[in-house]
Design a protein around this nucleic acid. Sequence first.
DNA 1: GTTAGCACTCAACTCGAAGGAGTGCTAACA
DNA 2: TGTTAGCACTCCTTCGAGTTGAGTGCTAAC
Lengths: 342, 342
Amino acid sequence: MELDERKKKILKAVIRNYLETGEPVGSRTISKYTDLNLSSATIRNEMADLEEMGYILQPHTSAGRIPSDQGYRFYVDTMMEEKDREFVELKEMLLERQDKMETLLKQVAKVVAQNTQYAAMISAPSMHRNKVKFIQLSRLNPEQLLAVIVVEGNVIKNNIIPIADEISDENLLKLNILLNTQLNGLTMEEINLGIIAALKQQAGVHGSLIGEVIDAVGDAIKADDDPEIYTSGTNNIFRYPELTDNGKASELVGTFEEKQQLGSLIQESLETDPGTGIQVYIGDEAPIKSMKDCSVVTATYELGEGMKGTIGIVGPKRMDYDKVIGTLRTIQSKLDELYKKE
Amino acid sequence: MELDERKKKILKAVIRNYLETGEPVGSRTISKYTDLNLSSATIRNEMADLEEMGYILQPHTSAGRIPSDQGYRFYVDTMMEEKDREFVELKEMLLERQDKMETLLKQVAKVVAQNTQYAAMISAPSMHRNKVKFIQLSRLNPEQLLAVIVVEGNVIKNNIIPIADEISDENLLKLNILLNTQLNGLTMEEINLGIIAALKQQAGVHGSLIGEVIDAVGDAIKADDDPEIYTSGTNNIFRYPELTDNGKASELVGTFEEKQQLGSLIQESLETDPGTGIQVYIGDEAPIKSMKDCSVVTATYELGEGMKGTIGIVGPKRMDYDKVIGTLRTIQSKLDELYKKE
DNA sequence: GTTAGCACTCAACTCGAAGGAGTGCTAACA
DNA sequence: TGTTAGCACTCCTTCGAGTTGAGTGCTAAC
């Protein structure tokens, strides 16, 4: 069977109506509120076809229809083609350039959650491809060095390095100069074994120390120990019974608090980014099983070169995709603006 | 009317039973399961008295009794007097000395939540009374300095300071020496206007810079911008219907995510610490209105000198106070041990 | 191909009866 | 005087029956 123009119209009408009301949609409603001028009986026939094709389904025999995951997928896909999403006016939007990345991210998450009334999450930009701007080793006490690493985007990382042998002030200074001249401007990916070996050689007596320091620098930059993710508006999920009935709320709240799993979703989204930076996961499409009744819309943002992170909005499958995508577009561009001034 | 020994026994029996079952307790249950050897009728009379005195109440006419807030308060108070809580064996306890405070705190919160099956929160130790161990200013670029401040407990803070006038390498070095010699070993509270003025004078040309730096140091140390609080096991609240019915879950989840309000609770707990470090807030006693159906048990912990923080456990009023208090005691002492080795 | 009409289905709601846990009160008992 | 047995009463909870209404599928006519 083919999805002809009329079927498409009816399918879209069903979905739109369901998004608005959250109730199963009957044939009569469609017949009345569309410009198709068809009787409910005709609609019924078409709807039976659409059900057979898997786009919609009935919760029970004598109920209206609701979109299936496949239906939502169709809707989102055609919606994405049709028009370039217009940007959405954000309420209470106050994004200021922050020295502290953390503050900015929390702000963004909050703004997004408040505007959409869904749950929002945001990941700190990954810094693998970030250039090292500044490295400094200082002596905290005879047994410990403090490593401070600043990478592009003014993200600062610290690490305390225990050292076996003492090191003189003079040597420490040399080491600092060495590190800065050799590593400055490199990305973490570029700091490979060859460079490390060369460094060790040049460091001479303190060659063994170099290894520790490089490890510390690596640690500091990758920050993988714990995916830095901020959430906001988790409690918005309580607006949607389909997400909170039957103890589902507990699982979701857990997922949002633990953040571990959110990381995998963000990873996935970064890897499969199509180009617009916006992706929609419906139900099982997301790699998190507690979100099987949710839809997730993710957007990749970029703060300067190579600083990529992901914003995600989690809501019920019947979320207002249009608005959500618009909001994310707006945020994307605002963030872009914000960091272009750098 | 007086609360004689028998009434106390009955009251405790009612509460203990209710804590176990979560169901209103009838006179017959008490008569059967206590060693009082009284008939249910007698118990009924006593229970009527206890109700009149405000210790217990009836959800409806023909139901058993449940403890009132006043009843819980009595129970907790006598329980605290009676015996020194014994320490509780913790499951999956693995606290390692962490360089990163953050990791340690998250660990603690998780362990506590998992062991008690309630929601847990923990605040980073306040650093107002912490001694400055190390200060360093470095030049990031001509317009920005990077201030790194390490305080006792190896907590590292960074701050980027924009500067108006350029500063020579030599002067920067002098400034660093000045800052370290003058501020080292002082607590934030001790760095007062007098010291700042003296510093400015000594800094000479860069006097104005000193002000900025001190502010940055202050900023870095107080970290009040956002109370650093970590939570774990928020979803445990879903185990208790009385906390999640009627949309209460949403409020609570919000409170836990926003953390703002948790800060006030932790503040309150630090200020009114009696000495044991353990406090119990029942219902309205806690300064957070979304927790009016909860009990909160807080414990002050200390990591080395002056590094005080608070752990809190939030659960239903019918929480297992005995176990919760025991768990907190255990954590308190483990943390103490951990940092005594310093 | 479209539509009107009709029988059918099924969730949701209402209502009342039955069940049961627990109380308060009274009167008898030690 | 304190304790207890007994009983009537209350009120929540559960369950099933009946009702309603939205919506469907099918058929026959247009």
